[in-house]
Simulated scan of single mutants.
Amino acid sequence: MQRRAQREEREQRAKRLSRVLVCAAAVPVMLVAAGCSSDSGSGESTDKAEKAAASASASPSPTVEAAAYDKLPEACKALSKKTLEDLVPESKSGKEGKSDDISTRASCSWNSLDNNGVKGSQFRWLNVSMLRFESDVTRGPADKLAQEYYAKQVQDVQAVDGAKGVKSEPVSGTGDQATAVHYDLKKKEGTFKQQTIVARVENVVVTLDYNGAGLAGDKTPSADDLLKDAKKAAKEAVAAVSEANGSGGGKASGSPSKSASKSPSKSASKPASGDASDEPSKAASKSPSKKAA
């Protein structure tokens, strides 16, 4: 009986030991399984990140259509000698406007005072301004920027302080689009007949200001004649822009502009011309030229 009890006790111990060993063996298996599962998740996350990075690097960089024109003509040479003789006969030479980049912004002005002594004098003032826009990936293609500026320039001219009888009309055959704005501007020296032509050709906006007045009792010039001359000069200035860039302009078919990744020139955000209403008054107060005297 005693031996039987001892044998049963040994069998019970053996069973308990067997259960302990089985449980102990199961723990590493669980740990290994957990470890594999953890590694698998990390690998998938890494693969997804790598694929996303590869996809981003494979995406093409933003591009924008190239600017058609990449230069401007010399403003003081934009009009022919014959045209200058007709519009500003007493002018000796043009005065070039200040610009921090003549490839994007240029201007030139001429004054003419024909002094007839006691019979009075005839005054003329002519100004040509050119503003070129560059394509930009954030702001858009150059011609679109030029169109926006063209519209704003026309509005600004129509809203000049002191302008009387403002009238506007489209001008054909001058660039891609052009508008003539004319009005009277009364100064202490007399009444000035102002003619402004705003034109756009591709990515360049040309603004031509031309005015005249009869001073010291001389008769006021014909607004129609001045407008006719202004239109002729504006057409010539626009043609000079195209000629400066070659017959086909500077556009490279299908390729982005070299400057497309850059911001537009600072000078391209400035007005292309000064306040036309101030110039006649300044020039009219000057002494008559020696030739006129």
Rank of each mutant, 00 (worst) to 15 (best):
S135K: 07
R139E: 12
Y149S: 13
G120L: 03
R132E: 00
F123E: 01
K98Y: 14
S112C: 05
L113M: 08
N127F: 07
D100T: 12
S121H: 04
D136G: 02
K98E: 15
L126W: 01
G117R: 07
S129R: 01
N111Y: 10
S103C: 04
F133E: 07
P141I: 04
Y149D: 15
V118T: 06
N111F: 13
L131S: 02
L126I: 00
Y150P: 01
L131F: 00
R124G: 01
G117K: 06
Y149V: 07
W110V: 03
I102R: 15
D136E: 08
S129E: 10
G97R: 04
L145T: 09
R124K: 02
R139V: 12
M130H: 07
L131I: 03
L131D: 00
K144E: 14
D114Y: 03
T104C: 13
A142K: 09
S99C: 12
V118A: 13
C108N: 05
W110M: 04
T104S: 14
G97K: 05
Y150R: 09
S109N: 11
S135E: 07
R124E: 03
D143A: 12
E134L: 01
L131N: 04
M130A: 06
R105A: 12
S135R: 05
W125E: 04
F133M: 11
S129V: 06
D101M: 07
D143N: 12
S103R: 14
K119D: 12
M130K: 05
C108F: 08
R105G: 03
N116V: 01
K144T: 14
T138F: 08
N115Y: 13
F123K: 00
S107P: 03
D101Y: 06
N115P: 01
I102T: 15
K144Y: 11
V137P: 01
A106G: 05
R124N: 13
S99D: 10
S109P: 12
K98H: 14
W110H: 07
E148Q: 15
D101H: 11
S109F: 06
E148Y: 09
L113H: 10
W110L: 03
M130G: 01
I102A: 14
N116P: 00
Q147S: 15
S99G: 13
R132W: 00
S107H: 04
F133S: 10
G97E: 08
C108L: 11
N116Q: 13
D101N: 15
M130D: 03
R132L: 01
F123Y: 15
S107K: 03
S135L: 04
T138A: 12
S103G: 12
L145M: 14
F123A: 12
S99V: 10
Q122V: 04
S99Y: 10
G117Y: 02
D101L: 10
Q147T: 11
Y150M: 13
Y150Q: 13
S135V: 02
